[in-house]
Design a protein around this nucleic acid. Structure first.
Length: 697
RNA sequence: GCGCGCGUAGCUCAGUUGGUUAGAGCGCUUGCUCGACACGCAAGAGGUCAGAGGUUCGAAUCCUCUCGCGCGCACCA
């Protein structure tokens, strides 16, 4: 029992006693920094961690992503790679600005009260206070990141790199400024790209309005004030007589003051032929409002005679051009007013209930207002081609492969990227007289090579780029992954990563998306607090079977906790049995069947685990080594080893120690703390930290 | 509307190219305080593999359809 006494091996494993101490030991060893790895670590392996927003604290999505990344990273380190896992945070333009604005609001102020400069100081202060919190939480998870290389998407060198990238595109003529109808969030007071939109089902009314000889259905009668044409499908026989002609219609006079009763006004409007009009839907005639509908704007682009009238402003209120009757009204108010007016003058034919999807801001949930605006765009045709080719040629491989479809689907229907945002927190557009900032994803897109030193030709960039693996949720395949791919190809001439692993999304036990605002989220820090990091990691990985969504079940964390205890006690037993023996350097030579068998069975299990990790099947890998360790090694072999025919034999002791030590190595990527802790107790000369021990052969 | 994924024990999920009594974890039942572990050990109950039809000597596994759930795209005038 001397091993046990010396090392303070108590009967039950308590993660709280060990985890923080062990993480400190790893960090102090400097081995998370590839520069400090032993000589034998030659071939580079690199991942640049998806930088979390400085607004956030760790949620289950992060936990899953960083845990499986860490499994891969630790595995590769043990395989002898020169491993770099690079951490950092994202300034997350709109999201962070919103958080700080909310804070200001509590003080009764807006950002405009402070002015741009003071507001930005305030955001920086916020970033300094909260930006590192999420990174500290990663330490609790056991993430083996090289903290010496931590980056931020707005650190000085990063800002310079973003500027370089913008100017590069600008010189190529791929960046242009244009008046176009874009998605506008009147709460965030900024434009959004087509990927920063979410859809929400909404019950609304569908209004049928008389337009001279035809009737038109719409959910947004207030945009009627900005109608500049009608459109019918070229093949629609019903309306052939009107196509291409100006027709006279009765409408409501928008310049009659609100205080007076509505009056009719006769106006002339052009009817054009366009395939966007669907004869099957509604009356088959559409009103064209180019300033407030993206499809309508595209129609206008095809028919240059169609004018543009902007009747809704950036503040979500009706403009002067809407007419004095409606000017200044919020969109909803204006809608009610115009419906009332149309009804009063007999132009409203009927109203139906209607359910449809409305576009909302992905950051604040406000219903978006498409409107005509002056914005900067990045031409996408060449870049999309590059991104497409990278996946077609296999330079970037999706896992599972089916997610390619989502990627191709976006690239094949791409619109130019609206890259300007009317917020203050972000990278300023580096041109004279420009006040806008860049879409936060413009800088994120450069992450894998800027963090390695670009635009400088650094040693890191030469060594670690292209990086090997990126893993993230399907939700940002186009928002981030696609843009990193074309950016990498454009600026470094190489894809940013070779394998793109789309991991599962963790849902609630009811199968719903976890949501902070609904209070349905599980807090991984609470799990760590309650069960320890290893058990949390175990529970999450156990459920990560392929790319399938996970309905969260905490019982697997509990199972993990039990498993740690099993490992702990099995190790105590082995040490007790094998007193005065050392772990053999090589696989022991055995003559007894039981010993030979357990070694063989271990090797088969190790090979399955290895193959599973190589294929990014982390759950399966864990199931395999779990099953071997508990049911084969403990339940069968350790019991046999108590019997006289095996007990106290030299080869049995060697086998016990060798299989235990080798199992700890295979288990280490999944549950690093307990394995390192037990490893520390094993009798071995010249022992290194388990994190750089060699994967068993 | 188009496409993708899923529907297997009470619950959360595995089931590789179709092939013996369909597996795991948790839960449940019955025994075990025999010096590694009761966060344990041993034994066990529990499944018409969503439904219908088809291919096959043989299907949870392949094909068709239906139903249910989730997601992406389109529509959303």
């Amino acid at each position: 029992m001397t091993h046990m006494k010396d090392s303070g091996f108590s009967k039950a494993y308590d993660p709280k006693e060990h985890e923080q101490v062990i993480y400190k030991r790893w960090e102090d060893s400097g081995l998370f920094n590839p520069d400090n790895l032993p000589e034998r670590h030659t071939q580079p392996f690199c991942m640049t961690m998806a930088p979390p927003n400085v607004t956030g604290s760790l949620h289950m999505g992060h936990a899953l992503e960083y845990i499986i990344s860490d499994v891969l990273i630790r595995y590769k380190r043990m395989r002898g790679y020169r491993v770099l896992w690079l951490p950092g945070t994202d300034h997350a333009g709109i999201a962070t600005q919103n958080v700080v604005e909310k804070e200001l609001k509590k003080e009764g102020k807006t950002r405009h009260d402070l002015g741009r400069e003071k507001f930005l100081l305030r955001v920086w202060k916020w970033k300094e206070t909260y930006g590192e919190i999420i990174l500290d939480q990663l330490r609790k998870l056991g993430a083996s990141l090289d903290w010496s290389r931590t980056r931020f998407t707005m650190d000085t060198a990063y800002q310079k790199a973003v500027e370089m990238a913008f100017l590069h595109y600008h010189q190529k003529g791929w960046i242009y400024k244009g008046k176009r109808t874009i998605n506008w969030c009147s709460r965030c007071v900024t434009s959004l790209s087509d990927l920063e939109i979410e859809y929400r089902e909404e019950k609304t009314k569908f209004y049928y309005i008389q337009y001279g000889p035809v009737i038109i259905g719409t959910v947004r009668p207030e945009t009627k004030l900005g109608d500049t044409a009608l459109a019918v499908h070229p093949d629609d026989e019903r309306y052939r007589q009107y196509a291409g002609k100006e027709i006279l219609i009765q409408s409501v006079d928008p310049n009659v003051p609100r205080t007076e009763a509505p009056r009719l006004k006769e106006i002339s409007i052009k009817v054009i032929s366009d395939e966007a009009a669907n004869p099957e839907f509604g009356s088959g005639v559409i009103k064209v409002t180019p300033a407030h509908d993206i499809t309508d704007f595209e129609i206008k682009e095809r028919h240059h005679e169609v004018p543009v009238i902007k009747v809704i402003g950036e503040d979500g209120r009706m403009t002067h051009e809407a007419g004095i009757r409606y000017e200044g009204m919020a969109v909803r108010e204006a809608r009610e007013q115009i419906v009332k007016d149309l009804e009063a003058i007999g132009l409203l034919s009927r109203i139906e209930d209607y359910i449809h999807n409305v576009a909302v801001c992905y950051r604040c949930g406000t219903v978006l207002e498409p409107l005509l605006s002056d914005q900067w765009f990045l031409k996408m045709d060449e870049l999309a081609k590059k991104a497409r080719e990278a996946v077609v040629s296999g330079k970037v491989v999706f896992h599972p492969k089916r997610w390619e479809k989502l990627y191709f689907n976006w690239l094949d229907n791409i619109r130019d990227w609206c890259i300007s945002r009317q917020i203050w927190w972000g990278h300023r557009i580096p041109l004279e007289g420009e006040t806008d900032v860049l879409d936060t994803w413009f800088s994120s897109a450069l992450w894998p090579f800027v963090t390695l030193g670009w635009p400088k030709k650094t040693k890191d960039l030469a060594t670690y780029y292209p990086t090997n693996v990126l893993t993230n949720d399907r939700g940002i395949i186009n928002l981030w992954d696609a843009r990193m791919i074309f950016s990498g190809l454009e600026f470094v001439n190489e894809v940013p990563f070779k394998d793109l692993v789309i991991h599962a999304t963790i849902l609630t036990s009811e199968g719903k998306r976890m949501s902070k605002s609904l209070g349905t989220g599980i807090d991984p820090l609470r799990l760590i607090e309650k069960h320890g990091a290893d058990a949390t990691r175990f529970g999450i990985i156990w459920q990560a079977m392929g790319g399938q969504d996970i309905r969260w079940a905490e019982e697997h964390v509990v199972a993990g906790k039990k498993f740690l205890n099993k490992i702990w006690n099995a190790s105590r037993f082995v040490l007790q049995q094998t007193e005065n023996s050392n772990i053999p350097d090589a696989k022991p030579k055995t003559t007894l069947d039981a010993n030979s068998n357990i070694i063989q069975t271990f090797e088969a299990s190790r090979d399955r685990v290895t193959a599973h990790i190589e294929h990014f099947e982390f759950g399966q890998a864990l199931h395999d080594i779990y099953d071997f360790f508990w049911h084969t090694f403990c339940d069968q072999y350790l019991e046999n080893a108590k019997h006289p025919e095996l007990k106290d034999k030299k080869e049995t002791n060697e086998t016990l120690l060798w299989v235990l030590a080798s199992s700890l190595k295979v288990l280490h990527p999944f549950i690093p703390f307990v394995t390192e802790r037990v490893w520390e107790n094993l009798p071995k000369e010249k022992k290194e930290l388990l994190i750089i021990e060699t994967w068993p052969r």
